[in-house]
Design a protein around this nucleic acid. Structure first.
Lengths: 136, 136
DNA sequence: ATAAACCTTGGAGTATAGTCAAGGGTCAAG
DNA sequence: CTTGACCCTTGACTATACTCCAAGGTTTAT
């Protein structure tokens, strides 16, 4: 089992060392041990754990949520349903956010479709008129 | 033309006075004038401007972007196309964000669909297995 | 007269996820 | 043995958009 310094771990996962220390402060990724001189030592398991964090982030989980996920996965007695629950909550949060953005986008698009565009003065701009309370 | 104090303006738009002063610091909303005693005085035009800010925020513009929009709308020589341009940029930003979220959502949903759920140990949880690098 | 509303500067706190700098100690190679 | 790369800690700073507070004072309305 290779023993990694923080720099090696960082390179392995393409993450800055500062970020690894930050995850440690947040309680997400602890080193296996410290050398007498205080250097952090990680194992290949740390690479997996860090990859976990990175993947979960890519799926829209916050560090706080990822911490919950990791704590769950660290407890041998926890069960699948708990993890699934967290994932489903996240799915519905994402769905809600998408619905919001779609509404916003449609409003904006409609606004631009009425705007005459090139060369016209602002007094004819339907976007500004909308903002100023005169609906097109 | 009624002359409003900051508190009245705040009530008219349901915004805290601190927020109005904050917008002033950010250069978005200046009072019409000050009384000898230093009170900020606003006009009904300020209500429109503040409503503009609020509406634009609802449409996903940042304060910085709203400032650009306002500066455009303050310049008599600027033209419709500039405003339209900013709105279209925002639309495509929103579209990109939606596309990202959809991808994330689909991945997560797929993950949960493989997860056995209730009562099963974590070793069978497809979500965690995914995070740890063993695709389901 | 008194209370409510206003003024100022400045700072702190909220949340998120880092990033960087200063000033040192440690380690491996040449 | 020295040099450079790497490591340590603490603490401050980035962006975004506020919100709240203090302290001390003025003004306005009833």
């Amino acid at each position: 089992m290779p023993r990694l310094t923080i720099g090696k771990l960082g390179k392995a996962c393409d993450v800055k060392v500062d970020t690894i220390r930050y995850y440690e402060r947040r309680g997400l990724l602890l080193p296996l041990e410290r050398t007498d001189s205080g250097y952090r030592i990680y194992s290949t398991h740390s690479i997996q754990r860090l990859s976990f964090i990175l993947k979960a982030q890519g799926l829209g989980f916050t560090l706080k949520e990822i911490k919950e996920l990791l704590e769950l996965s660290d407890k041998p007695e926890s069960d699948c349903a708990d993890v699934r629950e967290l994932a489903l909550v996240k799915v519905s949060q994402i769905e809600a956010r998408i619905a919001d953005l779609l509404k916003i986008k449609d409003s904006l698009r409609e606004l631009t479709s009425f705007c005459p565009g090139g060369g016209k003065p602002l007094t004819e701009c339907s976007i500004l008129l909308h903002f100023y309370g005169n609906e097109p």
